[in-house]
């Protein structure tokens, strides 16, 4: 058990440092964790992201708590939550004192152009991978029709609105019930 605690601490500290650009930036890291340790299945991880989205609190912190809980119980949840905020906390305290100097530092801005771009590319890669998986797309003819139809219905409905996780997830749940129970 101690080994899992240490691993959780190490992995979530890393996520805290490298997940740049908000809670969703942590998602590619969580999938990487999944592939490395097999603490939970991909489906379980997607369920966790959904729950994190409809629970009060920053999505990134919710995901850390939930992942820790799932992996190593309540102590695991505490460790992962603590670890994900640890380094950003120290950095923020340190930087807020040098606020203007840091914000207008050219090199920092240059590096952040790359960081943001990488965060976006990582998330895009995961999004396509998940789409293939959730709609069980194996090739152009072999896929789960109802899932793919639901995907297109949801994305065309919600992509032009302001992001509304709660509504999107409720619509998905209803769609899932209708497509899988009645059709």
């Amino acid at each position: 058990m101690l080994k899992i605690y240490l691993l959780l601490f190490w992995e979530f500290t890393k996520i805290g440092i490298f997940a740049i650009g908000g809670g969703y930036a942590a998602i590619p890291f969580l999938f990487y964790l999944q592939s490395q340790y097999n603490w939970f299945s991909v489906d379980e991880l997607i369920n966790m992201i959904a729950v994190a989205n409809i629970t009060p609190g920053p999505v990134g912190i919710n995901m850390a708590t939930y992942t820790g809980l799932k992996t190593a119980g309540i102590i695991g949840a505490m460790i992962s939550t603590f670890s994900i905020v640890l380094v950003p906390f120290i950095l923020t305290i340190f930087i807020v004192k040098l606020l203007s100097k840091f914000q207008h530092n050219k090199d920092v801005n240059y590096a952040f152009i790359g960081f943001r771009c990488a965060a976006c590319a990582l998330l895009t890669y995961i999004a396509f991978k998940l789409l293939l998986q959730t709609a069980s797309i194996k090739n152009f003819t072999d896929f789960d029709k109802s899932s793919l139809i639901l995907f297109f219905i949801l994305i065309s409905t919600f992509c032009f609105m302001r992001k509304n996780p709660l509504l999107t997830i409720i619509a998905g749940a209803l769609g899932g019930i209708i497509f899988n129970s009645f059709l």
Binding site: Y24, I27, D43, I46, N47, I49, A50, N53, C120, L123, T124, I126, A127, L130, L131, T134, A135, S147, L150, F151, L154, I155, F158, C159, K163, P165, T168, I169, A171, G172, A173, L174, G175, G176, I177, F179, N180, S181
Partner: peptide, 18 residues
């Protein structure tokens, strides 16, 4: 069944975030 649909919502949310 609901969670099957919810997982698709998560993918949709990730695309919207992108």
């Amino acid at each position: 069944n609901a969670f099957k649909g919810i997982r698709i919502s998560v993918v949709v949310l990730i695309f919207i975030t992108i």
